[in-house]
Simulated scan of single mutants.
Amino acid sequence: MQGLRTQAKSLRYFHFQGMVKDWSVFSELVHLTNIQELSFVKANFRCSEIEMLASSSFPSLTKLVFDTTSFRFPIIIPEIIIQSSGRKLRTFSLPAYFYPSYDGFTPTVALSVAKYCPNLVHFEYHTTKREFSQLVILFASCQNLEKVMLAGNPEDANELFIKLANLELPNLREFEITAQWSYTAISLESFLIRSKAPLRCFVIRSSPCFSDDHLDVVLRCLGDKLHRLYVESAQEMTKLMLSKANESISDFVYKMIDEVYNPGWLLEG
């Protein structure tokens, strides 16, 4: 920690990985006033460090990453950092995390990002259906979004696509859905046409529903404007549709999966 203190003013990147016995290291973060990137990987946060992080402010922060982290209290720590240091944030990532189940508790991470991160460009998040309305607010508020990855457990996502269709997303060039969501080709078409998102890369992983009809919608709506299309689905595509996709898209990959993996440890349903 003494070494960290001596580099406090010049340090630009702080990466924390794994378990730790002495959480007082977080008390040193308050001194990292010029930090630009914060990254926490496989960290198991307890209650004691909440106050330490709450007293810290990072006015130059542009990238904040939490990868496979656990929060043992119904306060999601990224929200605390976002509220004090989100103004210049361009990248925020929370693709897989755990919090204990408390009745009536719903994370408001997406809502905090929408409110405090107007310059966000890259957003990755594991979401539940209860947070879909927050996502709509986020897309509406963060007009500079270029790259989005959404993860999640099995949900009906038709309502989300229909609500996003009411927004214009002029800068969204990469969209990845790493979620076991079900949605119709009609709702997907509504989103692609009405949002006017200029997608160049569209990635679908672990899908239980993506079928010939969905692929047809993508080809009709995006056509040769799409540079990359990756589809991982439990549905078998016909040779005709696969041939059309290969002709239209320079980088097209389709993988059929036998079953969709459900990571039950991630959040509650």
Rank of each mutant, 00 (worst) to 15 (best):
K129W: 00
P95S: 02
C142E: 15
H126Y: 00
P78A: 09
S48Y: 06
V65E: 00
D103M: 07
G269K: 10
S195V: 03
V148A: 10
S250G: 13
I193C: 11
W181P: 03
E124D: 07
T184P: 00
I50E: 09
S206H: 00
V20I: 09
D216A: 06
G223I: 11
I137R: 15
D216L: 01
V109G: 09
S187H: 02
C209G: 04
I82V: 12
T62D: 08
I75M: 11
V25P: 01
S39L: 06
Y116P: 10
R220C: 02
Y261D: 12
D216C: 05
L267M: 01
A245M: 10
Q36D: 06
S206E: 03
D224P: 14
K21C: 03
G104Y: 09
F14W: 14
D22C: 10
S55M: 02
T108G: 13
M241A: 03
N34L: 02
T68E: 01
E259G: 10
P107G: 10
E79I: 07
V253F: 15
R173E: 09
I50N: 12
T184Q: 00
R220S: 08
V260L: 03
V231W: 07
T68R: 15
A245S: 07
Y99V: 13
V41T: 14
K129M: 06
L167V: 06
V148F: 06
L61N: 15
F132S: 02
F58C: 07
E159Q: 11
F73L: 10
V65Q: 01
E247W: 11
Y261M: 10
E168D: 10
V65F: 00
R72Q: 08
P95F: 03
F132H: 07
E247Q: 14
D258I: 04
L192T: 15
S112C: 08
L164F: 06
K244H: 08
W265M: 02
W23F: 08
A179P: 02
N34Q: 15
F14I: 11
P95L: 02
R228H: 12
Y230K: 02
V113R: 13
I35H: 15
I204G: 02
S85E: 04
L4D: 09
V20C: 03
E146W: 13
V113Q: 04
E155M: 03
I50H: 14
F66Q: 11
R87S: 10
V41S: 13
F45I: 04
L138A: 12
F105K: 14
N144K: 15
D156V: 04
V218Q: 04
E49A: 04
F26W: 03
S85P: 09
K129V: 04
K196M: 13
P263K: 07
P95E: 01
N166H: 05
H15A: 10
E51W: 06
D67K: 14
H214C: 06
E168K: 15
E247S: 15
I35Q: 11
D216K: 12
S141V: 09
D212R: 03
A165L: 00
W181V: 03
S190T: 14
K225S: 13
L29M: 00
K147L: 14
L150V: 01
R12G: 12
S85K: 09
H31M: 11
P100W: 00
F139A: 14
D216I: 05
M237K: 04
V121R: 15
F40S: 12
L219H: 11
V136Q: 06
S93P: 12
K163I: 02
R46H: 08
D156K: 09
E124G: 04
S211N: 08
Q235D: 03
V218H: 08
I204H: 05
